[in-house]
């Protein structure tokens, strides 16, 4: 299921929390410069999968995994791979807005300031990065006059776009979005979806949409997971109009999940 042109290739991947297996023998290729949606009901292992792609799962002592995840053909768990470097290349936006308790500007500048290459840069270079990231996340016009206001003062939708901007400021290659619009109003959701579609030319985007409609709207390819197993994967139109598996069509037509 994976090809050499894939940005991310997942091979024979198994994931356990203690004794409980949450991902079963997954093989999946994620092509570059596309929006790749992973759909499925709760407890399908999707969040675990996304967090495995930038090794955030390492933070849990109970996690154990087998198999390979290749980013540009290199195993992300190889001993010489720097995990911080990996996480800068593979950014993530969580299912709830997670602004840090500092100003809007400091939130966006947080990542670049950690980076050796950009740390030495002066304030104006940093503001350039921040402005670009905020523009890409379609937030600039709303916050440009109050960059020093606390990030917590933004609305939920603005906070989530701030989190997207914070990831973009690192100029990553892959962006993971774990149900990024689950608590948001339709207008904020639309804004985020618009930015994603605009961004996909430059990034590889993996999204776990919070409903099937969103998957239909934004994604190029769709994978359907159930109970930690991959059921079906294919182009957006194929999966929606012509699902190969009965369970996929049941899920898409809303019979369960």
């Amino acid at each position: 299921m994976t090809t050499s042109s894939d940005k991310i290739a997942i091979k024979d991947f198994n994931f356990y929390f203690n004794e409980k297996q949450v991902i079963h023998n997954l093989n999946l290729g994620i092509p570059p410069n596309k929006i790749f949606a992973v759909i499925g009901p709760a407890n399908s292992g999707i969040t675990t999968l996304l967090r495995s792609l930038n090794r955030l799962c390492d933070l849990s002592h109970e996690a154990r995994q087998e198999g390979e995840i290749l980013l540009d053909g290199r195993n992300i768990r190889a001993p010489d791979v720097s995990v911080t470097e990996l996480r800068r290349r593979v950014g993530i936006v969580f299912d709830v807005p997670t602004p840090l308790p500092m100003s809007i500007f400091d939130n966006v500048a947080y990542g670049p300031r950690l980076n050796r290459k950009t740390r030495g840069k002066n304030k104006s270079a940093l503001s350039g990065i921040a402005e670009e990231a905020l523009r890409q996340a379609a937030l600039w016009d709303e916050v440009k006059d109050r960059l020093n206001a606390p990030a917590m003062s933004l609305s939920g939708g603005q906070q989530q776009r701030l989190c997207l901007a914070r990831v973009l400021a690192l100029k990553p290659e892959v962006i993971l979005l774990d149900r990024p619009c689950s608590g948001l109003d339709p207008i904020s959701t639309a804004k985020i979806e618009d930015s994603l579609i605009e961004l996909k030319n430059r990034f590889t985007i993996v999204i776990s949409p919070h409903n099937i409609q969103q998957a239909g709207r934004v994604s190029d390819r769709i994978a359907f997971m159930l109970m930690g197993r991959l059921i079906e994967e294919g182009a957006n139109a194929d999966v929606f109009s012509n699902p190969k598996d009965q369970r996929t069509s049941d899920y898409i037509t809303g019979r369960f999940g």
Partner: peptide, 8 residues
């Protein structure tokens, strides 16, 4: 998680 996910 945010700190780590931004490559810190």
């Amino acid at each position: 998680e945010v700190g780590f996910s931004l490559g810190g």
